[in-house]
């Protein structure tokens, strides 16, 4: 199959702005699914609310467009009730980490076999450019007109601390790497988190004078390095890309099967 066979092509062109990184994330995700040779019927995509969450409408899987921040909770019900399904949950940064922060850490903790993709554009795009928990200090946003004083999260550190057994990061510039990481995340048995830095030229870019979409992607190239790069020692502000955590741990659905086995013995 070609990647386009996984799309609901009648809804294209999509609703994202020109140059929006979310389209590239969709592109990377479809390549991962295609390279793994997955069938459309075995995938459930659950998403929340926001620009990122519209991704579920564009893919020809079983799709569940849920509530702001709650996608992982819905997905947990889907996965536990039918573990043979592959469940992919793309989320925005505000979606995953502000309103959905509690669901996020508990999904990590449970180690249920779900693939979470955080499409991190550091802004609430759909509502018009308010700062998110990922914006960081000094950023301009429509709700931070005098510059932002809210400190940001590190998704990778948070997912790791909460117990996710696969944690990775890439960017829309590194689309090939993003595809590879998503593939590995899907194959990983347990809760996996892939953070993808994704540009919002319309709100984040414009408010912070970061140029066009391509300039913002170029910036991702400049500010990131592969994990363990010596450049990071000289410049601690560089953001690492790659796989931070990849470990085996009991997966929730399998553990629950053992509970059933035990309970049925009486």
């Amino acid at each position: 199959m070609s990647t386009h066979d996984y799309l609901r092509q009648r809804f294209f062109p999509h609703m994202w702005c020109p140059g929006c990184g979310h389209g590239t994330v969709l592109n990377s995700l479809l390549r991962a699914v295609e390279q793994l040779g997955m069938s459309k019927n075995e995938i459930v995509m659950a998403s929340g609310i926001g620009c990122s969450s519209r991704i579920s409408g564009y893919v020809d899987f079983h799709t569940l467009h849920t509530l702001h921040g709650r996608a992982l909770a819905f997905a947990t019900g889907v996965k536990l009730s039918k573990p043979e399904l592959n469940v992919i949950v793309p989320m925005g940064d505000g979606d995953a980490l502000a309103i959905g922060g509690n669901h996020f850490i508990h999904a990590c903790r449970r180690n249920i076999d779900i693939t979470a993709i955080v499409m991190n554009n550091r802004i609430y795009g759909m509502t018009g450019g308010q700062f998110s928990p990922m914006s960081g200090v000094g950023i301009n946003a429509t709700t931070a007109p005098f510059s932002n004083i809210d400190r940001e999260f590190d998704v990778v550190k948070m997912a790791t601390a909460a117990g996710a057994t696969f944690v990775a990061r890439s960017t829309t510039f590194h689309a090939q790497q993003a595809t590879d990481l998503i593939k590995q995340a899907i194959l990983h048995e347990g809760f996996s988190v892939v953070e993808i830095l994704s540009q919002c030229p319309t709100h984040f870019g414009r408010k912070n004078k970061l140029g066009a979409a391509a300039d913002m992607m170029q910036h991702y190239k400049d500010i990131t390095v592969p994990i363990g790069s010596s450049k990071k020692k000289d410049n601690p502000d560089l953001i690492e890309r790659g796989i931070f955590v990849q470990e085996e741990a009991p997966e929730y659905c399998r553990e629950y099967d053992k509970i059933i086995e035990q309970a049925m013995k009486g």
Partner: peptide, 21 residues
């Protein structure tokens, strides 16, 4: 294929001689 894999609109496909896409 850098254009194809980065295209946020999924609007580009590079067809190659070997028939690969």
């Amino acid at each position: 294929k850098l254009c194809e894999i980065r295209c946020p609109d999924l609007a580009i496909e590079i067809e190659t001689e070997e028939g690969g896409s």
